[in-house]
């Protein structure tokens, strides 16, 4: 991998994704949906009159919304990042110029930065909303949520890029990505075999959620959550480089 080449691919991805109408609409929907959870939380608050949950309930609902719906948006934006280049033939002009690992790592980092920014914007708005509403400045929740969800989305970005690198066209990549998402969601429930949940980033996202928002939670859970997701990211990045290195274009 060459850092210079990687940074160019990453920069190019960010510039072009942010100019793409489809991507911008998806991002807008993502942010709006996440922010809607603030209003939902406000309604819950009014109905339950539980003032003790005031302040962090916005983060709780946003975290859960992003945890459950975020992967759909990750797929919507990431699924065709490599397959589109394979399908159109643009990859055939790029691969002879750079290392294959630089290309794929650049894409991976670019998408991670993009989603990290989106999640950052969501939690920044919630933080400001909570700060204005309750006059409390709860920095731990937004920072911890942003960090965990960035890792969480990183797992799905890696998975999407693997599928995108293997697929020869975007529709195949989309179908395979959603199939993989359903399998991962089923695994997170420990369906039939308890050990299956360890293969699901969703489960690591949930235990991360528990360790942030549940004061009685075992703090080792946060280590498990971060460690599990970092393992997923490393494994998917390794697989990505392996897949890219061996396939023909």
């Amino acid at each position: 991998m060459d850092l210079h080449e990687t940074s160019i691919v990453c920069k190019d991805l960010l510039i072009n994704e942010l100019r793409n109408t489809r991507v911008l609409v998806t991002i807008a929907m993502f942010i709006i949906l996440s922010l809607l959870s603030i209003y939902t939380s406000s309604i819950i608050q009014l109905l339950t009159s539980k003032s003790e949950i005031s302040g962090n309930i916005g983060f709780v609902t946003s975290y859960l919304t992003l945890l459950l719906l975020g992967p759909v948006f990750v797929i919507a934006i990431s699924h065709d990042n490599v397959s589109r280049e394979i399908e159109s033939g643009t990859i055939r002009l790029i691969i002879p110029k750079i290392k294959r690992s630089s290309f794929i790592v650049g894409k991976f980092i670019g998408l991670n930065i993009l989603f990290s920014l989106i999640v950052g914007i969501v939690f920044m708005i919630i933080f400001l909303y909570a700060a204005i509403d309750t006059q409390t400045y709860l920095l731990l929740y937004p920072v911890a949520s942003w960090f965990l969800l960035t890792l969480y989305f990183g797992c799905f970005i890696g998975l999407c890029l693997i599928i995108s690198s293997l697929a020869d066209n975007s529709s195949t990549a989309l179908i395979l990505s959603f199939t993989a998402l359903i399998i991962i969601m089923v695994f997170s429930t420990g369906f039939k075999y308890e050990f299956l949940k360890y293969f699901s980033p969703v489960w690591y996202g949930f235990i991360g959620f528990d360790s942030i928002f549940n004061p009685n939670a075992d703090q080792i859970q946060i280590v498990k959550s971060i460690g599990g997701m970092l393992f997923f990211i490393t494994a998917s990045l390794g697989s990505l480089i392996f897949v890219m290195d061996r396939r023909d274009f």
Binding site: I8, V9, R92, I98
Partner: peptide
């Protein structure tokens, strides 16, 4: 080496200059 493979394509929404700048950067 410089290569122009068959069945390769350019990004349709980018200009010729933009392509040249991108490929130039990729070439170091």
């Amino acid at each position: 080496i410089g290569v122009y493979p068959q069945e390769s394509n350019f990004y349709p929404n980018r200009s010729a200059k933009n392509h040249m700048l991108l490929f130039g950067s990729l070439k170091g």
